[in-house]
Design a protein around this nucleic acid. Structure first.
Lengths: 217, 217
DNA sequence: GACTGCGGTTACCGCAAGTAACATGCAGGG
DNA sequence: CCCTGCATGTTACTTGCGGTAACCGCAGTC
């Protein structure tokens, strides 16, 4: 019975954890990333210490939530990136998938991109110079993923390892910043944005003509 | 005498404000963005309520600080963008200027990119769906600036207004994300990173060959 | 029937943002 | 000379949140 008991307990604990995450999700969706632990606990119908038993601290809960959403988003992007079509089409499909995701659930997007709080897991002693860790993990993961795909699929010559990662993170950052701006101002349709970004990646910057009345860009 | 008195008061108040900002700068540089108002007040040799009289709330102080640094950075970027050289050289110079800045003062960089806290200035009633405002203002300003330069100097055909802004924000995002990753992992020299990003913008993505053993990217 | 493990709660600590109310120093005006 | 006005500064408080300690009750087990 010991084993049965254990697994049953385990299953129940995991299920509980999932329920708590669902509740937290609802609250974050409603109140934004500054949702308090009290509010989340209340939504789940329990009290704070239980949350802490499950997730350690607020950062832990947020990381668990973020991981779920990030995994889902990455799965979507992967499938767009793996679709059977020519390269340009796939790039456009991937951009569109990302933009559609942030358009559909902006609160989730905002939560994922929020690096805030997170004293950082005990870097109290160091107290400074821990730069480069403030960007949202989802961006890092997307960048690495894209780097892998680039390195796998195209031939960049010598230094392709590093170059692929530069491009991966750069492209992801481009997509992110443009998407964020677009979501705030809505200056054009999604398709137009996709087209513009794909054009940028496709070297139109090189081929574009100078204006006759300017020193060139 | 009224006027003399007023202006004198004003000048003194402005000077005081500058001193307070200097102090805040030192503390943020030392403690990171989570520097407390108490700590800043102490550094300035005074107490909290004075800070609140000058800046309203923490967000106000942070905004004032951020504006100072952002202005300085933008001035540097502008001069790189205006240097007399061909387009590729100027793009590389601008990238290098940005990367050199974040390399030289990573704490400042981290502070500027930190959108955190900031309940947002009275959007309590709206309570949600205010997406697109979480990105650091410095990125938005850089994006708009670059958009202006692009729109001024090159001919993008119809829809050049919107397209220039798409590109501006996209390129800035690329620079930011790549820089952030680079600063954290230091996988190559600054010059190599600049080269890689400039190559990406220069259309190498289009011309690069597929690997023989892959379905292409 | 006492023992133990687990899900749960109340009640607290520490700390930071923000504020109210009080003190002090210094113009000018009767 | 004293009183008023006003800016500057302080102490001492409130509120709210992250995080924790200590206690509660109820399975099941020997």
């Amino acid at each position: 019975m010991e084993t049965t008991h254990r697994t049953e307990q385990q299953r129940s604990a995991d299920q509980r954890r999932r329920e708590l995450l669902e509740a937290a999700d609802r609250v974050v969706l409603r109140d934004g990333p500054q949702a308090s632990m009290n509010a989340i606990a209340a939504e789940a119908g329990i009290t704070k210490p239980i949350l802490y038993r499950h997730f350690g601290d607020k950062g832990g809960l947020y990381r668990a939530l973020a991981t779920r959403h990030t995994d889902a988003l990455l799965a979507n992007l992967r499938s767009a990136l793996d679709a059977p079509a020519d390269r340009r089409r796939r790039v456009e499909a991937t951009l569109d998938t990302y933009l559609a995701a942030i358009e559909a659930r902006p609160q989730v997007y905002r939560f994922l991109m929020h690096p805030s709080e997170e004293t950082g897991g005990g870097q109290q002693p160091e107290h400074g110079f821990d730069t480069g860790r403030h960007s949202a993990p989802v961006l890092r993961r997307m960048g690495e993923e894209l780097a892998r795909v680039i390195a796998e699929r195209v031939d960049l010559g010598p230094d392709s390892e590093v170059l692929a990662r530069v491009w991966g993170h750069g492209i992801v950052g481009m997509m992110h910043a443009a998407g964020d701006w677009w979501l705030g101002e809505r200056p054009c349709t999604r398709a137009e944005l996709v087209r513009g970004l794909a054009d940028l990646l496709w070297g139109r910057l090189e081929r574009v003509d100078d204006r006759v009345d300017s020193p060139g860009f």
